[in-house]
């Protein structure tokens, strides 16, 4: 029994829920903001990714940006945003190109091509990290489950003279805003090409252009979320909000709104879970999201059974 007590620490309401919002508000607020922004950007975009059956492409891209980021670090010898973005974008583009190449030039099916390309690039990236880890200020843990908490170690930068915020939070905020604005502006073409590519083409919307634009946007979001949540957990942020919302509603605007709500709730609960268990924040957020999905799924099953029972 002693053992299990060690595993699950005692729950202290004061420490878990009150102190972060009073005593440590300055640093905690930014962690919370970062968690929410990452989940929101991923979830919002993820709605379309899930509908277009590109969920595992997101997984592949999130893995294969690693060598791009490491090489950018090595070349530029800095943690500047721009080289990192370029490196990761290059790796993302390389991934899609390689998958297409293998799929078209040989008899290998798309799923196997995906499995080959992203694992190879990821393995390459991991070897680079373990060889030059000290130089690039990036370690394997960060790759595996991200370091959302590290936001507080950054020196805050002033934003338009209004308030001061850590650089990565500002960047993530910009990306989130950009995703929402782009989705809002191109809402109709996105909707059309996601649900009826034929109709979209006949109305002058090219599904290929939309597809590639979406891939590029996905790469941008994945890259900016990479440091916060790592390579694997991005996929949780991408898929869970969309699927959970789609269990609760059938209308796209409602689903998009729900993903934001889910992002807010899961960031909030996930942070407190991480505080309580002293675990990785990104992993805790994905556990919470997973739990929310299971709850939504169970409630749907229950209502369906109840409705059928009522009909009889």
């Amino acid at each position: 029994m002693e053992f299990w007590k060690q595993l699950i620490p005692p729950f202290d309401f004061q420490q878990v829920f009150v102190e972060p919002w009073t005593e440590y508000l300055d640093s905690f607020l930014w962690i919370f903001a970062m968690g929410f922004l990452v989940t929101a950007a991923c979830g919002f975009l993820g709605t379309f990714i899930v509908w277009r059956r590109m969920a595992l492409v997101g997984d592949a891209i999130s893995h294969s940006v690693l060598p791009g980021i490491v090489i950018a670090f090595l070349v530029s010898q800095s943690r500047d945003t721009l080289p990192m973005f370029l490196g990761a974008l290059g790796a993302g583009v390389l991934t899609t190109v390689l998958i297409e190449l293998i799929h078209q030039k040989s008899r290998i099916k798309t799923d196997a091509a995906l499995g080959i390309v992203f694992t190879t690039l990821f393995a390459f990236g991991v070897v680079l990290v373990s060889l030059y880890g000290e130089n690039v200020d990036l370690d394997v843990d960060c790759v595996l489950y991200g370091e959302l908490e590290h936001v507080i170690f950054e020196t805050p930068v002033a934003f338009l003279g209004l308030f001061e915020a850590p650089n990565s939070v500002l960047r993530m905020g910009a990306v989130t805003l950009a995703v929402m604005v782009l989705v809002a502006v191109f809402y109709r073409p996105l909707l059309l090409s996601s649900f009826d590519p034929g109709l979209a083409r006949s109305m002058g919307v090219s599904p290929a252009v939309i597809h590639h634009a979406l891939m590029a946007l996905l790469a941008v979001v994945v890259v900016s979320a990479f440091e916060a949540v790592g390579a694997v957990l991005v996929i949780a942020m991408l898929i869970f909000p969309a699927t959970t919302a789609s269990l609760l509603s059938d209308r796209l605007p409602v689903i998009l709104g729900l993903t934001l709500l889910i992002a807010l709730l899961s960031a909030f609960l996930g942070l407190h879970l991480a505080l309580w268990l002293d675990a990785s924040t990104a992993a805790s957020i994905s556990v919470v999201i997973f739990g929310m999905f299971l709850a939504a799924w169970a409630s749907r099953c229950v209502t369906r059974v109840a409705r059928e029972g009522f009909r009889r």
């Binding site: 595993l7 059956r53 694997v232 996929i235 949780a236 898929i239 879970l273 675990a279 992993a283 994905s286």
Partner: peptide, 25 residues
């Protein structure tokens, strides 16, 4: 109605997150 690729991704990420939390503990 969730498609197979999404459900694969969900199980992957959800279980992995759970595993990471347990291992942190």
């Amino acid at each position: 109605h969730i498609k197979e690729d999404s459900s694969l991704g969900m199980v992957l990420a959800g279980f992995y997150g759970l595993g990471v939390v347990l291992m942190n503990r």
